[in-house]
Design a binder for these strands. Structure first.
Lengths: 149, 149
DNA sequence: CTTTTTGCAAATCTTTTGCAGGCGA
DNA sequence: TCGCCTGCAAAAGATTTGCAAAAAG
């Protein structure tokens, strides 16, 4: 069963750090910074966008490090990697396990909004009936947002 | 309204060439070859896979040419560019306008199967109610296919 | 004949890898 | 201390661009 419709809540640096530790990873300065950025950024964000958030600061972080941390976080289930077709991967925090939502992307400004409805049980069952196991899905909507019209 | 559930049929090189001409493009050897490959290939195919289909033949085509043709065909609405998250774009012929289907991708072997159900009218309406215009969507299912289990 | 298209080379962009030194627990 | 992490440099893979020659209508 896919659970949809919940909002992000009750997440803080501490609980995230705890999940990092439980996954057998050390809490480094860089990982802490990255968690803060992901926590404070409402929309999915790319590695390069994260990188540029460090540009003017003295504690710059290497782009390579950002990629490596994101990959480990993804393997640990802490973040989800999203691709919307413009050649750049974006990342967002994964909420409680089983929680799941979709995205609405503006074709003009690339802004991303979460969509908290799902209701694809019958579709999932059909795919399982085709012989697939461990079925997941990705549903994205594209359009021109009100600001860009 | 999104129409789903139709199968590919009644497509041949001639009608495709006609669409190319109507889009103001010339029919070259390379474009003809590419159309034939797309027509005979049931699943979405990448630029590099197309390139390798020419490897052993004397009439090799440049990879750059393939990319350029695919881009023009996409702009003309002849082909659809698909991304499944492995960093490679795949292409398939766009059928009659309005026709539309989804994909089931095996996470192991990357095989792609079309899924001819849709039924997302209520989702589309919700996104339109959020203020978006020209709304389209992408729905992909991922799983382990029966051959890979 | 005029414009579009191709081929080759090289550039670009995102992401990954190798390796030595640095830091967390 | 010990092994995981980071930074720097360089590589890798997909896709794009510049330019002169070739082909289409």
């Amino acid at each position: 069963m896919t659970k949809c419709g919940q909002e992000r809540k009750n997440i803080d640096i501490e609980s995230l750090s705890e999940r990092v530790r439980k996954a057998g990873m050390k809490i480094t300065q860089q990982r802490h910074q990255l968690l803060k950025i992901l926590l404070n950024h409402p929309d999915p964000i790319s590695a390069d966008e994260i990188f540029r958030k460090f540009d003017n600061k003295s504690e710059g972080m290497d782009l390579v490090t950002i990629y490596r941390i994101l990959k480990k976080f993804e393997e640990a289930g802490l973040v989800s990697r999203l691709e919307f077709g413009d050649g750049v991967a974006r990342f967002e925090l994964t909420l409680e396990s089983g929680h799941h939502h979709h995205h609405v992307i503006c074709r003009q400004c690339q802004r991303v909004e979460p969509l908290h409805i799902c209701d694809l049980e019958q579709h999932m069952k059909m795919v399982e009936a085709m012989g697939y196991k461990q079925v997941s899905h990705r549903l994205d909507f594209f359009g021109i947002c009100s600001r860009c019209q």
